[in-house]
Structure formats: structure tokens, C-alpha cells
Amino acid sequence: MATTHTRSAARLMMAPSVIALFIWMIVPLALTLWFSTLRYTFYDPLTPFIGIENYTYFLTDPRFISAFQNTLILVAGVLCITVIGGTLIALLLDQQFFGQSPVRLLVLAPFFVMPTVAALVWKNMMMNPVYGVIAQGLTAIGLPPIDWLTNYPLLSIIIIVAWQWLPFATLILLTSLQSLSEDQKEAAEMDGAKALSIFWYITLPHMKRAITVVILIQTIFLLSVYAEIFVTTGGGVSSSNLPFLIASIISLEGDVGTASAGGIVAVVLANIVSIFLVRLVGKNLEA
């Protein structure tokens, strides 16, 4: 049992790490807040204080609405594909078959591919309308090829990001499946339950916590997708999300003040989403 002395010693030993972490987090945030209240650009040496003007400009910019909508569509689309697809693949991998270990390794492999590399592979080898794999397949069955990145830029990015995150969802959901007791399913089969009923009333409720954790973790990372957009479409109204819009404002326009305001807005929105998901996870863990 810990004594008052040991607790104090533990806090003292942890203090340097906690202080360093606090400084590492609070200094960039404080500077971003300060820059967001200045008319700060790369092309003007003067940086007068303008209050919330940068926030007003960013929030009323038509590009913000479009980027915010694209961010929500991107997150929702990837989550739908990864959760549903991950559940189906996990159910398949949970079965006994020849070559199970190599297949599992191959299914998990895309998660270890760097985002930039994955985007380049999909852009040049899969979605190219001339020599891409998808175009060749469509041509082989008599259908015209599709210029994915031109005609369906946001859908293309959703497919690429979902391909990267599908192994993660599969791994978490497969782990959850393997912890399910076979006795419950055998008892349900003896009572005459069909496979679909067993999945709906036994397997899916058991996987609920794992699904919630997948949604929480993926959402945090999906809110900051950037490399896939930069490599494939290069942005634009139809495919830019909030991180890409903020990066464009500071890199192309040199407007540090507005970009900083956009960063604060993005942080606030991300925290709102995270708080909602954390509460959702908490309810599922208590259930």
C-alpha cells in the first residue's frame, strides 16, 4: 500500500516529464492564439493587433464551409468503410483455413505503408485513367475508364484513406472476435438460431466496445488527413479539408494570422468531436 512519502516521491519523479510535456503543448498553442489576433503576413513587417478579425474572416470564407463539409464527409465515409469492411474481414479471418497466418499478415500490411507512398501508388497504379489497374479492368469488360481524381476527387481520397485504415479496424475487431466465448454461439445453434441471428444478437453486441474504440481512434487521426490530398488532387474546393485549407492559407497566401485562427477553430472542432466520442466510449464501456 502506497504511503504519503512514496506518493510524494512518485510525483516528484514524474514532475520533469509532466512539465516538459506541458511546455511542449502550451507554448505552440499560446503562440498560435497570439498570432491569430495579429495581422501577420510574410509580406508585411508590421503586425498590428486586430482582435477577432482573423476569426471572422476565416469563418465567413466560403472555402471554410466547403472544407468543413469535406472533412465531415471524409471522416464519415472512411469510418463507414473501415467499420463495416473491418467487421466482415474480421469474421472471415476468424475462421480456420489453410494459410491463415500469411493471409492475416497480408491484410494488415497496408497499415504500415506511409500515407504519401499509398497516395502515389493509388494515383499512378490504381486510379490512373490510362494505365491504372481499375481502368484496365473496366476496359477488359467493355466499360469506359474513369478519371477518378478529376471526376470524383473526394471519393478517391476516401477510398485511399480507407484502404490505409482498414487493416487497423480489422486487427482491433478480430481481437475482439477471438475473445468471444464459443459456448454462447454453440448454445444458440443448439436452440436453432441461424448464422445471421447469432451475428446480430451475440457477435455484434460483443464487438460493440471494439467498434467504438476504432471509431474514436480513427476519427482523431482522420481529422488531420493532409498528405493524401496534397499528393493526389492538390486541394481544390471539391477535396480540401480543414488541415489542407489552413496549410494553403499560410503556404500560398503567407497569411499567418488567418491560418493561426483557422488552426484554433480546427482544434476547437476536433475537441468537440473528441469529447462526444469519449462520452460515447464511456457509455459503451459501462454497458
Rank of each mutant, 00 (worst) to 15 (best):
E186A: 10
I229N: 06
N271T: 09
L105P: 07
D191Q: 11
K123C: 10
Y152I: 02
T82I: 12
N271R: 09
N128C: 10
G137T: 12
A9G: 15
A187L: 15
R104V: 08
Y57E: 07
Q178K: 09
T3D: 07
R104E: 00
G142E: 04
L166I: 05
A76Q: 02
V83C: 13
L174N: 04
V268I: 14
S176F: 05
I250V: 15
F276V: 15
I89W: 05
M126K: 04
L88T: 03
G142H: 05
A169S: 12
Y152K: 09
P145R: 10
Y57C: 07
L245C: 04
T258K: 10
S181L: 08
A76C: 11
F42Y: 12
I52H: 04
V237P: 06
P167Y: 01
S240D: 02
W34C: 01
G77V: 09
F49T: 04
V78N: 04
A119P: 00
G132H: 07
L108N: 07
K208L: 11
I50Y: 01
I211A: 14
H5T: 14
F221V: 07
V268Y: 10
P144S: 14
P243K: 02
L166D: 01
A135I: 00
L33A: 14
T212R: 01
Q178S: 09
T47M: 09
F42C: 13
D94K: 00
I23P: 06
K194G: 13
V237G: 04
L196Q: 13
F168N: 06
I198M: 12
A247N: 07
Q164A: 12
A169C: 14
